[in-house]
Amino acid sequence: MEKSDWQYENMPDFLQDRSLGNARIEQFTIFEHDFRAIYRDGLKPGKKYVRLMIDGEIFMSDAPMEKESNYNVIDDAFGDILLAGLGIGLILLPMQKKEEVKSITVVEKNPNVIDIVGGQLPLNDKVEIIHADIFDYEPIRRYDCIYLDIWPDICKDNAGDMSNLIDKYSNFLTDKPDSWCKAWQEDYVMGNMYIREGEGAFDYS
Rank of each mutant, 00 (worst) to 15 (best):
A132F: 05
F31Q: 14
M11K: 02
S103F: 04
Y169K: 04
Q16V: 09
I30Y: 10
N22M: 09
A37H: 05
S19K: 15
E199C: 05
R141M: 09
K47E: 13
I74V: 15
P12S: 08
V101F: 12
N10S: 09
M190Y: 08
V189H: 01
Y71R: 14
V106F: 00
V73I: 14
I81S: 01
K48Y: 03
P122A: 05
D175G: 10
M95G: 06
L86E: 01
H131D: 08
V113S: 01
Q120I: 10
R24A: 12
K44W: 07
E2V: 06
R51E: 11
M162Q: 06
N192F: 15
N158H: 15
S103N: 09
D41C: 09
N70Q: 11
E68N: 11
A201R: 03
L148F: 00
F172Y: 15
G89L: 08
R40W: 09
F135K: 11
M193E: 14
I114A: 06
A201P: 08
P177M: 05
D41T: 12
S69E: 07
H33K: 14
N112A: 11
N171G: 15
G89T: 12
D115G: 03
D17H: 13
L121P: 04
D125R: 15
L93Q: 02
I154W: 07
H33F: 13
E100V: 06
N164R: 11
Y137T: 01
N192W: 14
G87N: 08
S69R: 06
C145S: 11
N110K: 05
Q27P: 04
D55K: 13
K3I: 05
I154E: 02
P64I: 02
V117Y: 01
E26D: 13
E186M: 11
